[in-house]
């Protein structure tokens, strides 16, 4: 059974296949913007993780006579805050909580939302209505308001703000997961899998999950920046982290009073939030185009 037309492709086929994710990684590596953003995020994350071992000053140790020193002061490269604590130390240590509170809710919401969305999209009918209409209820509230309301009802604290942010991000992820799943479900390979006698759970696991994870993942990445800003907002309102913990949102809040005295220092936590969120946004954009097979 010699196949003339196909033989030409066979010749090209002798190289080892890289697989889908291998190709995505290769395309991402070729994108300079994504790589710069990834490097910045990696640097900030590593600095935050290893903050106690970097030989920085004590983030809680203040000095009443060295309050609000400007950027570039000897011994305080990024100045001091309103209690005379070293800003560089607090920004590096602040990254620990800020990144945690920005990432964890999105990670939890990603798992819960993807599961619910795939179930709703694949099973359709009554199950779909039940899940999607419940999600719609949460959509009735603006996300900031919802986060504040849940946090307020549960009381302040880190755990409660994580919980409230998770609840805020589940509905949009369910929405995206459901619509992507509905699209994939109508493709012939799902019908072929059904025709081979596979159950709903097996089909969702083997055939749906791998094909919907990409778009949902990209969307969830873009939520990290929103989550960081919301978390900063909660801390700013006193619902998240409590002083004297270093956290970017909280630092922005406490330095607010110093905005006329030393605006550059007061803006630093905001610069960190901005940098991290824009890096996550650009990285998710890069991933979106890297995952587009048509490129």
């Amino acid at each position: 059974m010699s196949v003339l037309a196909d033989d030409l492709i066979d010749l090209a086929a002798t190289r080892k296949s890289r697989g889908y994710w291998g190709n995505v990684g290769r395309r991402l590596l070729r994108d300079p913007v994504s790589m710069i953003c990834a490097a910045i995020l990696l640097l900030i994350a590593l600095a935050a993780v290893f903050a106690p071992y970097l030989g920085l000053a004590d983030p809680y140790l203040g000095s009443m006579i060295r309050r609000l020193r400007p950027i570039g002061t000897a011994g305080y490269p990024l100045g001091t805050d309103e209690l005379g604590r070293d800003m560089l130390t607090r920004l590096v240590h602040g990254g620990r909580l800020s990144l945690l509170i920005g990432l964890l809710p999105v990670v939890f919401a990603f798992f819960i939302g993807t599961t619910l969305g795939i179930i709703a999209g694949y099973l359709g009918g009554v199950v779909n209505q039940l899940i999607m209409r419940t999600v719609d209820v949460f959509y009735a509230f603006p996300s900031v308001l919802l986060a504040i309301a849940i946090s307020g009802a549960l009381g302040g604290g880190l755990l409660n703000s994580l919980l409230s942010l998770t609840i805020v991000f589940i509905p949009p992820i369910v929405r995206v997961a459901e619509s992507v799943t509905t699209g994939v479900r109508s493709l012939d390979f799902v019908d072929a899998a059904r025709a081979s006698g596979a159950g709903a759970l097996t089909i969702m696991r083997v055939h749906i999950l791998g094909n919907v994870l990409g778009p949902i993942f990209v969307y969830a990445t873009s939520l990290i920046s929103v989550c960081m800003i919301l978390a900063a907002g909660l801390s700013f309102l006193g619902l998240g982290t409590k002083p004297p913990e270093p956290e970017w949102g909280l630092m922005l809040n406490t330095l607010r009073t110093a905005i006329y005295v030393n605006p550059w220092v007061a803006a630093l936590p905001g610069v960190m939030i901005f940098t991290v969120s824009i890096c996550f946004n650009l990285l998710s954009d890069g991933m979106r185009s890297a995952m587009d097979v048509r490129n």
Partner: peptide
């Protein structure tokens, strides 16, 4: 199926 591409799971 007719559509040889859509009837194979791309992943």
């Amino acid at each position: 199926f007719q559509d040889s591409y859509a009837s194979l799971n791309p992943r």
